[in-house]
Design a protein around this nucleic acid. Sequence first.
DNA 1: CTGTTAGCGCTTTCAT
DNA 2: ATGAAAGCGCTAACAG
Lengths: 334, 334
Amino acid sequence: MATMNDVAREAGVSLSTVSYVLSGKRTISEETRLAVQSAIRKLDYSPHSGARALASNRSNVLGLMAPLRADVNVSVIMQFVAAVVTTARTYNQDVLLLTQDDAGGLERVTSQSMVDGLLMMDIEARDPRIPLLAKLRKPAVLIGLPDDPQGLSCVDFDFAGASRTAVRHLVDLNHRSIGFIGSPQASLERHATYADRARKGFTEACDAAGVSSTLRACEASMLALTEALTAVLDDGGATAVTALVVHNEGLLPLLHEALAGRGLHIPEDISVVVIAPEDVALAAARPWTAVSIPAHDIGRAAVEMVMDRLNSDKPVEVRLIVPTLVQRETSSAR
Amino acid sequence: MATMNDVAREAGVSLSTVSYVLSGKRTISEETRLAVQSAIRKLDYSPHSGARALASNRSNVLGLMAPLRADVNVSVIMQFVAAVVTTARTYNQDVLLLTQDDAGGLERVTSQSMVDGLLMMDIEARDPRIPLLAKLRKPAVLIGLPDDPQGLSCVDFDFAGASRTAVRHLVDLNHRSIGFIGSPQASLERHATYADRARKGFTEACDAAGVSSTLRACEASMLALTEALTAVLDDGGATAVTALVVHNEGLLPLLHEALAGRGLHIPEDISVVVIAPEDVALAAARPWTAVSIPAHDIGRAAVEMVMDRLNSDKPVEVRLIVPTLVQRETSSAR
DNA sequence: CTGTTAGCGCTTTCAT
DNA sequence: ATGAAAGCGCTAACAG
């Protein structure tokens, strides 16, 4: 492996000149710059990241703590992670992966100066990792919205707004009684905030519009879905439920069948709006009217926010990504 | 941040003694060892990874190139990744994540000495990344089995064996005509080797047992599944298909419904054996008879193999993980 | 616009 | 069983 010294000798300049050519922190004459660059190419030089980290106090690595359990949301998680890695590369950063259950990992990678900043996914309302993170005094961004961010920046999709948007769409289509099929009970119990917020937004929007609402949590299985539909559709009381908002990607492959099993056709008998990643909404034979979860945008925003905090000292920031609804064939007026 | 020097001073010993206490590469008297350890605790010292990497030529980081597209196999991929990260930690290594489409990343992290070894997932038969990897002269392990490993170690599940095991199980139950519903056409076309090998093993085992076989690729949608079932079940010719081997996790939530739609009950009318991760096979209302894909074991083995190659110079190795079948309620004798 | 030089925090010989 | 000291390859202040 060639070192910077080798390059300097080859180019007939000093070591620091090579360093400055690489960093651009000094104005260099066209001539020497070219000489250095050609020496770099000739020797196939690349800088030693450890040495650089030691001298500059920057590792060019971001730590990402991701939930790697086989949850319902795997595809969303993968999209987040992909977006984070891709965006990090545009900032010339790499990504070190930490698992959710290795809480000590946050502390470890920080105290060993392995990372310049930290991202944490799948935040719960009172996530015990937040105080840990806050203590570390490293730029950090939470992907999710806890009760108390304790001075950390956050970014997330506006799940409450997503539900509101879905409800308004259905109300505009003259639906007067709307059902909500949400995340599994387990998500609610561990207070994954996306689940709570989506439900809250739904209820509020229905109340505001004066339409009746029925909510139900649901596992990703046909059995659970059938039960949930029974509960929601038969329970409607005075006005029959004519539209559903579904916030659970795992159910989408099952939903057509389950409704057909009750003799209900989409959208003639029942309108459906899903809250799901775009590609999941489009994967179905009949694409869903959807408020799409822009996993990629969120991941990108998260990286941008850490990098901002790394390069300047911007104040903390809580950013909610605005939902948009795309009407497709699964919702119609009644 | 305290440095090793601070610790040495605090403990009243020399810098090198502290280093040797940490590495264990020298015998240290009980007394000084305790003094050093207490100084470490008192100052809350942890070594600077960059400095260590610079001096020792070891980063304690493994690079993992993973397919982060939202594919059909997301859950399997997540399990691999989780296993890799977890196992790496037991070797005191961290994991740097590279995305599939960043082929240059392999070269970059290697030449910058960011990683001690590399793992690459989702290997295709003639994967163009293999020659790149082979050139890097870093310990590397392929998770998958290409046509020509070019001197790299490989580890994978024995997908051919998995199909054979499934077929033998069904033959033992007196089935004489077996269908195979496999990965999407796209997987075959890009020559994901797991898809090829599972098919091959299936055909071979059926031929060897003298039972008739019908194969079909299938996307993860109800529509595609319905078509595939029609093709496989109606196409049987002389002997009707009485059992299915399904190698496609995305289809499992749909399968009961799809078969019920044809008036077929499991296992009275048709037996089903799936090749899928254990938890996926168990997630169904009625757990599947399954040859389980031990994603965790494969990930663990991969890390063990790089670490072996890092610490000694073991010869290259191709390791296939042996399949085992667990009978549950979806297969029965006829 | 360029060169000289003092570290950054560690590992590892060489001494004793 | 311990210490002294020479790097590892880079960044950035200092000096022109």
